[in-house]
Simulated scan of single mutants.
Amino acid sequence: MPTEPPSYESLVAEAESAPTDGWDFSWFEGRATEARPSWGYAVSLAGRLARADAALDLDTGGGEVMDFALARTATPPRVLAATEAWPPNAARATRLLRPRGVVVVTPAGDGRLPFPDAAFDLVSSRHPVTPHWREIARVLTPGGTYFAQHVGHRSAFELVEEFLGPLPDDVSRARHPDAESAAAKEAGLDVVDVRVERLRMEFHDVGAVVHFLRKVVWMVPGFTVARYEAELRALHERIGAEGPFVAYSARHLIEARRPLAG
């Protein structure tokens, strides 16, 4: 006898009860998928950590990416630090990364980093909220490298516009790789590599949408189920009739270096 599909109410209730701290996305298994960039950021980071003397990871989330990379680094840097502003993530990152010798600190609200000039020869970040280029340049040693994977311009806007309606093209323009490259150069860094990909995302039920928007809070600011119930119910019906909702994330890999003379 065919099984009845889960109801809108049950899917939403499950998603609302799921914890949102850290960057562990295992909750989405079987419910949503996102293609991964071809460059393999975490593995590439492990190789760079093995060659670094002092490394800083910005906006480390729950520390999962840094932990993955350090687990694959035979000779970790002598000095290891990370920043995280959101208290639940900072606590989680501290528990995960302290055994690996990483000190997790809270950055200033204005983006200033609590480190001296030229403190790190490697600064990394996976999906920073806002890259503060002048601070990145300041804490890098001459010849030091910033190596990061950023969320790009209009990432997953197919989903965002389901809730906010059509948005002008210049929304999130600051995240465009050209704009970020220009900002890095203005801060005195040499941009040595930029790679860009758009990647297919699929949401197989409305609960996955709810959990995603609760976890990635800047996508639809002020999102709550109550506020967007009409849109969520319509999406639930559409997924049931047509199959997974498809969106496309934007990612770019950026590598920038502080000049030896700077």
Results as ranks from 00 to 15, higher is better:
Ser17Lys: 14
Glu186Gln: 13
Ala182Arg: 14
Trp39Phe: 11
Val12Met: 03
Met66Val: 05
Lys185Ala: 15
Ser44Lys: 02
Val123Ile: 10
Leu189Trp: 00
Ser7Gln: 05
Ile254Val: 14
Asp170Trp: 11
Pro19Asp: 07
Thr3Met: 12
Val104Ser: 03
Glu135Lys: 03
Val171Phe: 00
Asp24Pro: 12
Arg48His: 08
Arg200Pro: 05
Thr73Ala: 06
Val160Ala: 09
Leu235Val: 04
His127Asn: 10
Phe212Lys: 02
Leu140His: 00
Val220Met: 04
Arg173Ile: 02
His150Thr: 07
Val194Tyr: 06
Glu231Gly: 06
Arg98Ile: 03
Ala230Trp: 06
Gly40Lys: 13
Leu213His: 05
Ala15Phe: 07
Arg78Val: 12
His153Cys: 08
Pro177Cys: 02
Leu122Asp: 00
Ala32Asp: 08
Val209Asn: 03
Gly109Thr: 07
Ala137Cys: 10
Tyr228His: 15
Ser38Cys: 11
Leu49Pro: 07
Arg31Trp: 10
Val209Cys: 00
Ala18Ser: 14
Val206Met: 05
Ala42Thr: 11
Gly47Met: 11
Leu97Asp: 01
Ala55Trp: 13
Arg72Val: 04
Leu58Ile: 11
Met1Ser: 06
Pro5His: 05
Glu231Gln: 15
Gly243Arg: 10
Pro244Val: 10
Asp24Thr: 09
